[in-house]
Simulated scan of single mutants.
Amino acid sequence: MGVVLVALGGTISVSGGVRGERLTGAEITAAVPGLEELAPVDVLDAHAVPSGSLTFGQILDTVAVASRAVAEGADGVVVTQGTDTLEETAFLVDLVWPHEEPIVLTGAMRQPAMAGADGPANVLAAVRVATAREARGAGALVVLNDEVHAARWVRKTHSTSPATFASPNAGLLGHVVEGRVRMLLTPPPREPLPAGLDRARLEATRVALHVVTLDDDGARLDGLETTYAGLVVAGFGVGHVPGVLAPRLGALAERIPVVLTSRTGAGSVLRHTYHAPGSESDLLQRGLIDAGFLDPYKARVLLRVLLAAGNGPRAVADAFALRG
């Protein structure tokens, strides 16, 4: 059957003409040299908005559309969207994607009318990966700049560079070279979560993110448990916070799940190397959940999905132990 491409909007779709006008998926693919010879591509348009305006529900709707396409015989799926939230949406897709067929997310850093526009090359590479035998079973992948990244590890690391996407903790999975998909690493193991979340419950499940800063007393966390179902803390270094903040976080952890991550952008939270008040071992003893290598943004995605599915504290901790 070929590939189904679902177009969501973003820089790759900015027309450069009438203000607010977006290119359709068909217009995006029409600008890709050699695409017709590569594989049949059926195009679907959905949620043509900047990626900063996408919602969990819209991404899960996209997964449902992609799943139907695979059930009807598609060899793989490509999703085009803005890059601002691509690292989060790709991880959400990966959490619930149940198929062997690849689902590949891509976008662009330069608008189609700009010199050196990267959208066509990224779409071509994404379609190649979506049809590649080597990508089967890898779950959701992010493909830009002829690089293949696992959704679990990919990060946007630069505001404007076409080479913005990187996977600091694991390295990229592969490259597209002379039209050939070269997978260099084995994708991380996956255990997909159920995709059929109750949408009303998902909308009602709010998860906060608190980035710890110098001399942070956490005063704005007071009463957070009354409006949020969970909290992700982006701590210093290996998972540290000011000592004065530790009791506040411990008290919150008695009421809602509180997940401990690092704000550094790479590396794991530790468990038992430091022991001062506010250290990682102190916080874990107070009931915080270790996110391992997951960054704060992906940890928030996972925590919200887990809580919306009705998972309790033990199940949440087990899920982070498996994926972090």
Rank of each mutant, 00 (worst) to 15 (best):
T29G: 06
G10P: 05
V18P: 06
G17W: 03
G25W: 00
E21A: 10
G10H: 11
G20F: 02
R19K: 14
A31F: 08
A31Y: 09
A30E: 15
I28S: 01
L23S: 01
E36W: 06
L23C: 02
A7T: 12
G9V: 09
G9D: 11
A30T: 11
E21H: 00
E21Q: 01
E27V: 06
E36N: 09
S13Q: 12
A30Y: 10
A26R: 15
S13M: 11
T24D: 00
I12Y: 01
G9K: 08
E27L: 11
E27Q: 15
V32D: 11
A7E: 03
I12E: 00
E27P: 05
A7N: 14
P33C: 04
A39E: 11
I12V: 15
P33G: 04
V18W: 07
E36K: 15
V14F: 12
A26L: 13
A31K: 13
T29Q: 03
L35P: 03
E37C: 01
V14I: 14
G10Q: 09
G25T: 04
G20L: 04
A30I: 11
A7Q: 12
A7G: 12
A30M: 11
L38A: 10
R19I: 13
I12M: 03
S13P: 07
L8C: 09
G20P: 02
V14E: 15
E27W: 09
T11H: 02
E36S: 14
S15K: 13
L38P: 05
R19Q: 14
S13K: 12
T24Q: 00
E27I: 08
R19H: 12
A7M: 08
R19P: 06
T24S: 12
A31R: 15
G9R: 10
G16E: 09
P33W: 06
V18Y: 05
